[in-house]
Nucleic acid binder design. Structure first.
Lengths: 151, 151
DNA sequence: CAAGGTTAGTTGATACGTCAACCTTGGCTG
DNA sequence: CAGCCAAGGTTGACGTATCAACTAACCTTG
């Protein structure tokens, strides 16, 4: 249980600052361009990736790695704003099925364009291909190290 | 305004998942070990780094890159829990000065030990020194690209 | 020194995230 | 099939983050 080295501590500090600034600017651009939060965006994109723009809530939850209450609250808000609908599931009447509305589908596409563009401008354009590859490898290594700890 | 390449998109996805899982597990460990949130922790550590465990709120705000209302709300809660005190500033009576209580100081030290240990276990132990250096360089590059956009 | 703009900080409203408690349904197992 | 437990989801309470509106003090400039 040795202390972090100076290099490690400095790397961690840089990472933390980068992480906060980056998600801040991306979130703000997204909100400004489309009125969506990052949570809205994550849900819309995840549902839009499924056939029929439809997905079992449980499956959505696992894909996003969200707590069940978080998803429930988020879906309630999105339903109120007319982005999705919820139906009870056929195979398992405990479950529910999420479907994009027309407006949800449109927003998902539009938001994804804006978002990807912002990722390109703020991240990809500043990094060399080697750095992008290194980042991916680092992230995958850590992902492998940190298993999901769902409730 | 070209699309992201497959490599870029995959790198971004990995980064996002890593980021969320990592801050999730670190936050949970911190809360479990000390009862502090990450926001509490950031404030305590930032104040504890200053001489006398004392800092002007403005300076704290700039260091953390927080919105002023965020800091205000956070300090109110921390004051109620006896982690800090607030006094009005001598030189500028608009301002305020934040000071750690004895309990705040103790918690800051204890939490930092736990936190650094978790960073070591979850991050540093899994990465090569080259990867740590690469991460720092990537983060610094992006930090330079994304200027602070305070309100 | 008076007027007007700027700055530090607070407040209230609203959205988001987590936890614990709860309800209903599904699946076991005796 | 009766009794139970686990699983999917909802709800309420509370802490946290952001925005806009506000107050009070500071600072310039005429």
């Amino acid at each position: 249980m040795a202390d972090l080295t100076d290099r490690q501590a400095a790397a961690w500090t840089s990472y933390q600052r980068m992480r906060v600034r980056l998600s801040g600017v991306l979130g703000r651009e997204l909100a400004h361009a489309t009125g969506l939060s990052e949570a809205d965006f994550d849900v819309l994109v995840a549902v839009h990736e499924r056939p029929d723009d439809t997905v079992r809530a449980l499956s959505l939850r696992c894909g996003l790695e969200w707590e069940k209450s978080r998803l429930s609250h988020q879906l309630r808000r999105m339903e109120q704003r007319g982005l999705i609908t919820r139906e009870t599931c056929e195979e398992d009447s405990r479950g529910s099925v999420v479907r994009l509305t027309e407006r949800g589908r449109e927003l998902a596409c539009e938001a994804k364009r804006h978002y990807d563009d912002a990722v390109r401008r703020y991240v990809m354009d500043s990094l060399t291909p080697e750095q992008v590859a290194a980042l991916a490898e680092i992230a995958d290594t850590l992902l492998d190290r940190i298993q999901v700890t769902h409730k």
